[in-house]
């Protein structure tokens, strides 16, 4: 049996009268590339934000590997092993690419916190990830001067710097050219082979279907279908949700 990664039971979040996530009970599988799809406004990003602690759910629970993480603050969830990217990409615009990476270094003791941030081992690790995503030649550039695609790669590299076992990506292919989508997809596959679990919100169906092992479909804040890509593709409820027939 596969181990459980992120799972939720009855997760609910409303903004005023709009119920963004409505009694969602979902399980994502450890070691797999999971996808979360659904029409615009179906509550995918709110679901992400509830799981990663950015917003507190009104009801229900979120678990990670059997551990209750509901209502924990985002940095504790990050330290539990969940890294995330943001829709529309968030980086630290007025810091260099290298410094963007060094933010993600985690230490607990005061002594380690006061150590030089530009130390050999942190720099080596940061440069290693930058090389892996292919932007190591830009390490001295202020992040705001990068192209959007490069910023997306930087965000991914920054998430990886925290060495998360589970990586939640919010629209990794959004606004990115096809060649770069291929690069990101290849990277996700490789990282998954190395044992990292993925949970991806994405609108690019070709990418979702070719990349993922397990797909969950949201509609109006609740899961309406879950399964491997071929099953999802054939599911009439999914077609209905997308086409509104």
């Amino acid at each position: 049996m596969t181990r459980r990664s992120v799972e939720t039971v009855g997760l609910t979040k409303a903004f005023g009268g709009v119920v963004a996530v409505d009694d969602a009970t979902v399980t994502f599988q450890d070691g797999k590339i999971n996808a979360l799809i659904g029409p615009n406004g179906s509550g995918k990003t709110t679901f992400f934000n509830c799981v990663t602690g950015m917003i507190k759910p009104d009801a229900g629970r979120a678990m990670y590997r059997g551990q209750d993480i509901t209502g924990r603050s985002p940095h504790r969830i990050a330290r539990a092993g969940i890294g995330r990217s943001f829709q529309l990409c968030r980086i630290f615009p007025r810091m260099t690419v290298l410094d963007n990476m060094l933010v993600a270094v985690r230490t607990t003791s005061l002594r380690a916190q006061l150590a030089n941030s530009h130390n050999r081992s942190d720099l080596d690790r940061a440069r290693g990830w930058l090389r892996r995503v292919g932007i190591d030649h830009l390490e001295g550039v202020e992040a705001r001067n990068l192209s959007y695609g490069q910023q997306k790669l930087l965000e991914l590299a920054g998430v990886l710097m925290g060495d998360p076992e589970t990586i939640m990506l919010d629209e990794p292919a959004g606004g990115v050219n096809p060649a770069l989508i291929e690069r990101i997809a290849a990277l996700v596959r490789q990282l998954n082979k190395e044992g990292r679990t993925f949970l991806i919100v994405e609108h690019n169906m070709d990418l979702v279907m070719s990349l993922s092992d397990h797909v969950v479909v949201f509609d109006r804040g609740r899961p309406i279908a879950a399964g491997p890509p071929p099953v999802i593709r054939a599911d009439p409820r999914v077609l209905e949700a997308y086409l509104g027939v």
Binding site: H75, A78, R90, F92, P93, M95
Partner: peptide, 14 residues
């Protein structure tokens, strides 16, 4: 300094 730039993002990185 990361807090100055984007506090939520910094927190999401741990």
């Amino acid at each position: 300094k990361a807090i100055r730039e984007d506090e939520d993002k910094a927190q999401s990185l741990g």
